[in-house]
């Protein structure tokens, strides 16, 4: 099935990076992939979001308006995107910064205190990858091995010392029991 994914949060929460990791999983799995970020003053204003499409078929519009997978990391993103998710879609919600719960029973939500978990485990700034881990568990969108490989490809050589922390964050999110 096509994965139409939206990731959203504050600028600085690693939204675009997390999206890039997802795009790489598609590339590793030999699927069609697109990644489209928000850009310009919107980014400076504090919110960042990106659309990722992964499909067995050619991708039409790279902009996802109605995701079947949503990751939201702050309250503004939750408010903006929660009602756009298609029925049956999955949502990962960073409950450290989002104190709301949806009444929509047609979507599946994981509430994960990702920011808190990152801070407690010395993984400051990696709540994004924790959320990815939780999303992977929930959606089964690809194999754990593929996601690990994607993380490895996305951590630049200049930041190689952060790779272990990223992989630890992925595991932490994947193992989270909601």
């Amino acid at each position: 099935m096509d994965k139409n994914i939206v990731l959203a949060g504050f600028g600085g929460q690693g939204i675009l990076f997390a999206g890039k990791v997802l795009a790489y999983t598609g590339m590793i799995d030999n699927l069609h992939v697109s990644w489209l970020p928000s850009y310009g003053p919107e980014m400076r204003g504090g919110t960042a979001n990106c659309s990722v499409c992964i499909s067995e078929n050619e991708i039409g519009s790279p902009r996802v308006l109605n995701p079947n997978i949503l990751i939201v990391m702050n309250i503004q993103s939750y408010d903006r995107f929660i009602d756009t998710v298609v029925d049956g879609g999955g949502v990962v919600i960073n409950s450290t910064l989002i104190n709301k719960k949806t009444n929509n029973e047609k979507i599946n939500c994981v509430y994960i205190p990702a920011t808190e978990m990152a801070n407690e485990n010395g993984l400051q700034g990696l709540a994004n990858i924790i959320c990815l881990g939780a999303m992977l568990k929930q959606s089964g969108m690809t194999s754990y091995k593929t996601m690990e490989e994607a993380v490895k490809k996305c951590v630049p050589a200049s930041k190689a010392h952060l790779l272990d922390a990223n992989l630890k964050a992925l595991k932490l999110g994947y193992d989270f029991e909601g």
Binding site: K20, V33, L36
Partner: peptide, 10 residues
């Protein structure tokens, strides 16, 4: 256009 410029694809 802005989408082609900003988006990533393999």
């Amino acid at each position: 256009d802005g989408a082609l410029g900003q988006m990533m694809e393999p």
